[in-house]
Structures are given as structure tokens and as C-alpha cells.
């Protein structure tokens, strides 16, 4: 069935608003589990405040966090999908424009990275397109705040560095980030591919609901081990100390070159937001 670009605009606008008002069930459960585990009084108070804040945001339809982010959009485009009515890219940007305007969301995008004039409507979106079989399109909207984005890093490791090298780098990035990215964080890790592919893998790892693991058993185990080690760093909620520095470590991997072992670490704050829809 043909998909009209107006359906895309409408869906994106709605998801921009909902993602910013309503925190996902997986994150809320993460807070609750952390509350049960935390012994530090200040850590417990921070987590209780975050739960109360999420409740107010949902009730009053206002943003959970004032940094309503750059609109990162993953587009899975079915190779047989029929799009009618205009440009798909423009339809997505129009959805962002409408969603951020109608939703009273903050406009945080500057047109030129050096001249820094605000575009006034939070466009352009960051759109990552993947071609897939079928005639449908799947859109995932993931507003990304920059307190945590600024704490992200990438490194081209040597093959000989192996899994220990990967783990050391992830721990180093989280430790250097400290209190800055609003812990408890979600840590997205991309291993393999090329320089840019590793970063994209890490970004996509962030939108995987927490509690779901990498399908490879050995990588699922690395996710668990890293989560334990990160939570032993003692940074805690907001950096005030405690046993919950991260809610999850999500790793995505891809084949790479005989000479390389790229690793990207993309950090997200405790307001990790994403909504998805399939059209067609």
C-alpha cells in the first residue's frame, strides 16, 4: 500500500512529542530496580525525584528534560515501499518542525557549527536510512540530548587489544564522563565496521530497550560484565555517589577489517527516549 508523506510527517510530529513527555517503561523499571538496590540516602533521593519528575511530565504533557535534543531518526526503508506526495526527507523534517513547535519543545539546533545561529525549529533532523526487504517503512524517533552526547568517544583499537581493550576503553569513557552526562546512564557501544559505522552502531545500541541483550552469548556476557564494573565505579545517580552509574550497557557489533578494531561509546542520560512506528 502506498505511503503518503503526510502520514510520515504526522507520525514523526506525534513521536517527537510523546518521546519527550513519556519516559519508556524499561527506563522507569530501571529506576525502580536501582531504588531497591541503592543504600545511599542521596542516591535514593535522586532516583525518587526522577520518578516524580517523570510522573509530572506525563501528567502535564511537558518535557521530562529541557534538553529535548536533536531529533535522531532511524528510517528502515522497505525496498518495495511506494512513497507518494513529495520528498520523504522533507516530510520527516516537517514532522520534527511541527512536533517541536506544537509540543512546546526546546529548539536546540544551530545552522552552522561555528557561526551558531539557531534554526528556530529544531531542524534539520539527523536521519539514518537502512534499506530492508518489504514494502513498509519503520521510523524510530530518538531525541538526543547533548549533555551526554558530549561525553561520547571513539577509538581505533588494535586487533591485539581484544575484548580487554574494548572493556578498558568503555570504562575509561564512563569514568571520564563522571557526573556530566546525568547518570544513571545508558551506554551504547559499537564494535567493528569502519570509523563511522562504529559510531552508528553505538547510537543504534542506545535505542535497544534496556534488559534486552546482544544475540551473541559472549557479547551479552560482556554487556553484563561491563555493567557490573561501571556500577562499581561509585559515580552514582547525578554523580553524588552510589551503586547505580548505568542502567544498561548495550553492544552492537559488525564485521571489520583485518587491521582494525574500532570501538565507539555513545552515552545517553537517564532520560533515554525513543518511539517507533511502522507505516504501509
Amino acid at each position: 500500500m502506498a505511503i503518503h508523506v503526510e502520514q510520515v510527517t504526522e507520525a514523526v510530529a506525534k513521536m517527537c512529542k510523546e518521546a519527550n513527555y513519556i519516559l519508556g517503561a524499561d527506563i522507569l523499571e530501571g529506576y525502580q530496580e536501582a531504588l531497591e538496590r541503592e543504600e545511599s540516602e542521596v542516591a535514593r533521593e535522586v532516583l525518587e525525584t526522577l520518578l516524580e519528575n517523570a510522573e509530572i511530565a506525563k501528567e502535564e504533557k511537558m518535557p521530562i528534560c529541557q534538553d529535548t535534543g536533536m531529533a535522531v531518526i532511524f528510517l528502515e526503508l522497505g525496498q518495495d515501499a511506494e512513497i507518494e506526495g513529495g520528498s520523504l526527507t522533507e516530510a520527516i523534517n516537517e514532522g520534527v518542525r511541527q512536533g517541536y513547535q506544537e509540543g512546546y519543545l526546546r529548539k536546540s539546533v544551530v545552522a552552522d557549527p561555528l557561526e551558531r545561529q539557531n534554526t528556530g525549529d529544531n531542524t534539520p533532523a539527523i536521519i539514518h536510512t537502512e534499506l530492508v526487504p518489504g514494502d513498509k517503512i519503520k521510523l524510530t524517533v530518538a531525541p538526543k540530548g547533548f549533555g551526554s552526547e558530549n561525553m561520547s568517544q571513539i577509538k581505533m583499537l588494535k586487533p591485539a587489544d581484544g575484548v580487554e581493550g574494548v572493556k578498558d576503553f568503555v570504562l575509561q569513557v564512563v569514568e571520564e564522563a563522571g557526573s556530566n552526562p546525568c547518570p544513571p546512564i545508558v551506554v551504547g557501544v559499537g564494535i567493528g565496521g569502519t570509523f563511522e559505522k562504529a559510531a552508528l552502531l553505538a547510537k543504534k545500541a542506545i535505542v535497544r530497550p534496556i534488559g534486552l541483550h546482544n544475540q551473541k552469548e559472549e557479547l551479552a556476557q560482556v554487556e553484563e560484565e561491563l555493567l557490573t564494573e561501571i556500577n562499581q565505579l561509585g559515580i552514582g545517580p547525578q554523580g553524588f555517589g552510589g551503586a547505580t552509574t548505568a542502567l544498561a550497557v548495550n553492544i552492537n557489533d559488525y564485521p571489520t577489517h583485518i587491521a582494525g578494531l574500532p570501538v565507539a561509546v555513545n552515552i545517553n542520560c537517564h532520560v533515554t527516549r525513543h518511539k517507533e512506528i511502522t507505516l504501509g
Binding site: 529541557q66 529535548t68 519543545l105 526546546r106 536546540s108 549533555g147
Partner: peptide, 22 residues
């Protein structure tokens, strides 16, 4: 250190948490 969200009708200010200080 804050860059608030726009106020909806009837609000004094939109969401207004702190930004990273460094």
C-alpha cells in the same frame, strides 16, 4: 545554567533543568 523549554499557555516557564556546567 539553564536553557528552558518554551512555556505552554498558562505556564510561567517550560521544563527547566540544569545544563552541564564545564
Amino acid at each position: 545554567y539553564v536553557g528552558p523549554c518554551p512555556a505552554k499557555p498558562g505556564q510561567v516557564i517550560g521544563s527547566a533543568g540544569p545544563t552541564t556546567s564545564y
